[in-house]
Design a protein around this nucleic acid. Structure first.
Length: 254
DNA sequence: TTTCTTACA
DNA sequence: TGTAAGTA
């Protein structure tokens, strides 16, 4: 490649620090053969960017729930490509939000959807929530049109702006938990078996495909389940209100 | 002093 | 995975 290569080298303590782990663990992984031996100068070893990248990879995989044994197995069986393949795998989980296009909309138009004035505080609050971005005086970029539009519509129907502002972050927080759990199980049930099996390079597209299939399925479940639970909650709540009204009707004052 | 190995908890 | 001892 270019000539501006990162050819700097560093000792274990620096390596460990940059990799975000202890020297002890660097040596442990080294002993297991998870990283190549360093360039030796007398008794001290000098490590390069490749060593660092490998350690970061290991740390990331461990953080995702892979066992050290599985990582070891994968790396040892496919020394030259394991790193790249694993990185590809990681990117699948982390770069799945690129199909979330932003959308420009006139300030007046967005306001009309919600039935509010163009200067209503709701727009400011949505901006604070990271849902909107001011482009210029009367143009707004919706970072998440799929959230903003329905939110505005809900306000038009009668939900208060404050409620929307309260619900959105709440939903996001809990859905993130659901997602984390989902990812955990996918890595354990779908991905790890492939690592355990020895990482046949030809088979990795199969794993990617499985994950691609699981994402819409999981999304489907979330929508269906939420719809069901929401309906039930509303019926229960309204049922209580009706009972209260009925009780008051039978025995006024008490 | 620091790096590394080995051994033990 | 942390710590300690003995080296180079």
């Amino acid at each position: 490649m270019a000539d501006a290569e990162r050819d700097e080298e560093f000792t274990v303590d620096v390596l460990a620090e940059r990799a975000g782990m202890t020297v002890r663990n660097v040596r442990a992984y080294s002993t297991r053969g998870l990283i190549d031996p360093p360039r030796l100068e007398g008794r001290t070893g000098y490590y390069s960017q490749k060593h660092l990248q490998r350690l970061v990879l290991i740390r990331t995989l461990l953080g995702r729930g892979f066992t050290l044994a599985a990582i070891e197995d994968a790396i040892l069986k496919s020394p030259s490509t394991a790193s790249n393949v694993a990185l590809d795998l990681i990117s699948i989980f982390e770069v799945e939000d690129d199909e979330d296009p932003t959308e420009l909309i006139g300030r007046a138009e967005l306001a009309s959807i919600s039935g509010l004035g163009p200067d209503h505080e709701l727009l400011d609050k949505m901006t604070e929530l990271g849902l909107l971005e001011k482009v210029d005086e009367d143009t707004i970029r919706m970072l998440e049109p799929g959230v903003v539009r329905p939110g505005a519509a809900a306000v038009a129907i009668g939900l208060s702006p404050d409620s929307v502002v309260d619900i959105v972050p709440h939903m996001r927080e809990h859905l993130e938990q659901v997602s984390d759990r989902f990812v955990h199980h996918v890595t354990r049930d779908v991905v790890q078996p492939f690592l355990d099996a020895g990482l046949p390079q030809d088979e990795w597209p199969v794993v990617f495909e499985k994950i691609d299939q699981l994402i819409p399925i999981a999304s489907q479940v979330v929508v269906s389940m939420f719809r069901s639970v929401l309906r039930q909650a509303i019926e229960t709540e309204i049922g209580h209100k009706l009972e209260e009204l009925a009780a008051e009707g039978d025995q006024p004052t008490s």
